[in-house]
Amino acid sequence: MSRPAGSTARRSVKTEYIETDTGNKISRRAFIEGKQNIMLGGKTVIMAGVHLRGDLCRKPERVAEGEKEKPNTTAVSIGRATVVSTNTVIRPPMRLHKGQMTFIPMRIGDNVFIGPNAHISSASISSHVYIGENAVLSPLCIVKEGSKILPNTVVPPGMTVPAGTVVGGRPARILGEVGDGWGQGGGVEVEDWVEGGDLRPLVRSIK
């Protein structure tokens, strides 16, 4: 799946996206490392120039004798109908644990929109989250459900973005709450998807 940057020229026979059985759309121009450690929920889009660092996973612990060796661990798991826009970097965070630096598996929920040029290194992102362009989610921050991260925001390390809030600034501060109708009203027409709502029509429109 990962190809050198030189071979990005598109030929007419090849489509931009490879579609998997579960409906995931992965750009041929995405940079994906350690794909055995990446889980995609289905109908998820990985766009061109996205760096997915699945190779940064927890090293398997020493297996006691007689026990079966565990299959490889998940580094990044992404839910359903999540859109990762162009040139975003997704990199699992690491921290000191029992005197050793280990990578923490990263979880991203369903219907999450990640804008272009974002840098994601958070511990978890819940469902129906909107992340604007150029946002930086520092290591081990936690983004709760239905929150909105404005463009160009830097979420500081270890911050918890509460559910249903709007954060922005460098460092990110809570600026307000999303409306009570957050994520409602989409799906009226194909082009009328809304932030925080069902992203399936958006995923369908990406070809």
Binding site: S85, G115, P116, E191, D192, W193, E195
Partner: peptide, 11 residues
């Protein structure tokens, strides 16, 4: 249609 500025896929 008018692109929804919230869903910028490319800069």
């Amino acid at each position: 249609p008018l692109a929804n500025p919230a869903f910028l896929l490319k800069p």
